[in-house]
Design a protein around this nucleic acid. Sequence first.
DNA 1: ATGGTTGCTAGGCAA
Length: 268
Amino acid sequence: MPFTIATWNINSVRLRMPLVQQFLERYRPDVLCLQETKCQDDQFPASAFRKLGYEHMAIHGQKGYHGVATVALRPLELVEKREFCRMGDSRHLSVAVNAGGRRLLLHNFYVPAGGDEPDPIINPKFRHKLDFLTEMHALRAEHDDVSGSILVGDLNIAPLETDVWSHKQLLKVVSHTPVETEGLERLRHEGGWVDLMRQHIPPEEKLFTWWSYRAKDWDVSDRGRRLDHVWASPNLSPSLNRIEVLREARGWDRPSDHVPVIAGFDFD
DNA sequence: ATGGTTGCTAGGCAA
């Protein structure tokens, strides 16, 4: 029984609904997790999703900033909208879906970017990012015979050397500093999560999901980073049959700076 | 060496 889930930092869902529509019509993932929706819940383009067949939605938005939403072709059960760091930010949403006789717990995350200066003493945004990661440590990849967990989203950290265009040049750049990369890997191991993108694509291979708007030619310079992730509990990883990073989406008209990542499973 | 771009919304702030 096939099951596909996609994650995409959309950088304003209202502005980019035409691209989302194009994506959903072409790829038809069972579930799409969006980050940086940048609108309040009553402004979320729910009817446009409904017309596309995505009738089931869980949204956790806020005015102007952040915001996550999970939309699906099949029923979703809202599990939690968790607040991190007592900031009042909308950065997490979890739902449950049934797939191949299993109950899947799906976490959708938008981790703080952390500002420019990688020093928690002088930069409160970086402090917030580190605190957010610390709070995420409580999140375990819950699973048993009939259930599993998937965690997706923009984690704003590129953990491996091959997750950035230049490991050396980015060591002091927020998203690839050792305190972040080691912190993310530690939290993934302690939570019992498997990095599905790197299970499918060898860690030796460069892999990016984000390219800055500021580059003259993002495709030619290719100064990307892997900021978006798909993790799962270990009982789901043998069922993974596909990971696709939709690089071409960065070249679409008025694109997001992130591209969709699609994970395909075949559950028995 | 330190811009460069984009989105939210109406002047910066965040990314």
